[in-house]
């Protein structure tokens, strides 16, 4: 704070004019802005501006330092209160670049509102895409899968559930996210607008997005098999001679014999098609799937003794195809009568 006031008295009339007085941001100013954003990026998330007010809050230490003229302050606040939305961690590269632009502008560089707005609105979409596929699309499901495996109790390793799974997830996830966020923020500031634009033009971000797409698709494919469980419970007996009857399970003996794992794959591709191509709301889809599941469980449709509780969810998690009983959750399976 003391440096701020010292600089403040010195640069009273210099801001915006750029004659002689230079206003330089310290690393501390940029970090203060980083923490404000990291904490409060979604504090006032709303349909009208999304992270708009959070962007303005993050810029307040910068504005306070750079501008002393009330009109300049007003303009800067309004400039940063507009609609803004990106992925908060990776997207910090935008804030870094905008801070660098504000600094140049306060020192007399010819950067108008349009230049700053175009950097914000031009970058927020692509970086939301990259950021979401990295943070929510890749890192989070991987760490969740690890944590769930430990916390739910993997029969082959620990047997019982272990709360360490939750802690491992929490520490790794938050640590990685904060490190990513700080890295991208500082990259943005150090490179500035020109550097970030160059980065975009060079195609590095596109390559990164494509690479993230490869990795993300692999992970989503694996998650589909591990967590999506769809069964058809159609059984019938086939006379096998000698009075024996062979149980013919349409799921195991027909579908999985022809195309292994067809049903979960089909459900995910159908969901993707409905949401991405037919623009169906995910909420609708959720309602439909719950209804389908309830109807499917109704005694008329469900097989008489299919232990869904075990097979469809947790046991299947570790032993996807018709695993043995005993894993978490089987105790509550409706008693086979």
């Amino acid at each position: 704070m003391s440096t701020e006031t010292m600089q403040g008295t010195g640069s009273g009339m210099g801001a915006g004019g750029g004659e002689g007085q230079k206003v330089a941001l310290t690393r501390g100013d940029v970090q203060r802005s980083f923490w404000l954003w990291t904490f409060f990026s979604h504090a006032n998330y709303n349909y009208e501006r999304l992270q708009g007010t959070a962007f303005a809050q993050a810029m307040t230490p910068i504005i306070r330092k750079l501008y002393k003229d009330p009109e300049e302050i007003k303009a800067a606040l309004k400039r940063h209160l507009v609609f803004f939305n990106t992925e908060p961690n990776v997207g910090g590269i935008i804030h870094g670049a905008v801070i660098a632009m504000e600094e140049q502008r306060a020192n007399g560089a010819d950067i108008d509102d349009d230049a700053i707005n175009s950097v914000k609105s031009g970058l927020m979409g692509p970086l939301a895409g990259i950021g979401d596929s990295i943070s929510q699309g890749t890192i989070t499901p991987i760490l969740l899968t690890l944590g769930i495996g430990i916390a739910a109790g993997n029969p082959t390793i620990t047997g019982d559930g272990n709360p360490l799974g939750s802690i491992i997830y929490l520490v790794l996830e938050v640590g990685i996210m904060l490190a990513l966020a700080y890295f991208f923020w500082m990259q943005g500031y150090d490179r500035g607008r020109v550097g970030v634009m160059e980065l975009l033009r060079s195609g590095a971000l596109d390559r990164f997005l494509t690479g993230a797409g490869v990795l993300g698709n692999m992970v989503m494919g694996a998650l589909t098999f591990q967590f999506v469980h769809v069964y058809l419970t159609l059984h019938f007996g086939i006379p096998a001679g000698g009075g024996n009857v062979t149980d013919f399970d349409i799921n195991r003996d027909l579908l999985n014999a022809m195309v292994p794992g067809l049903l979960p794959l089909g459900l995910v591709l159908l969901s993707w098609w409905l949401i991405a191509r037919r623009r169906m709301s995910p909420l609708w889809l959720l309602v439909v799937l719950v209804v389908v599941a309830l109807v499917g469980a109704f005694p008329i449709f469900a097989g008489p003794d299919t232990p869904f509780g075990c097979e469809s969810i947790l046991n299947a998690f570790f032993q996807p195809a018709y695993g043995a009983n005993g894993a978490l959750g089987c105790g509550a399976a409706p008693p086979a009568s």
Partner: peptide, 30 residues
């Protein structure tokens, strides 16, 4: 069967989250 239904739903619903992720990455050459 109601609880069974919810458990079956538990096997179906992860498809929505996965599909929402795929909306961003399931395209082109990847």
């Amino acid at each position: 069967w109601v609880l069974k239904g919810f458990q079956i739903a538990g096997g179906l619903l992860p498809a929505i989250g996965i599909a929402l992720n795929m909306r961003f990455i399931f395209r082109g050459s990847v």
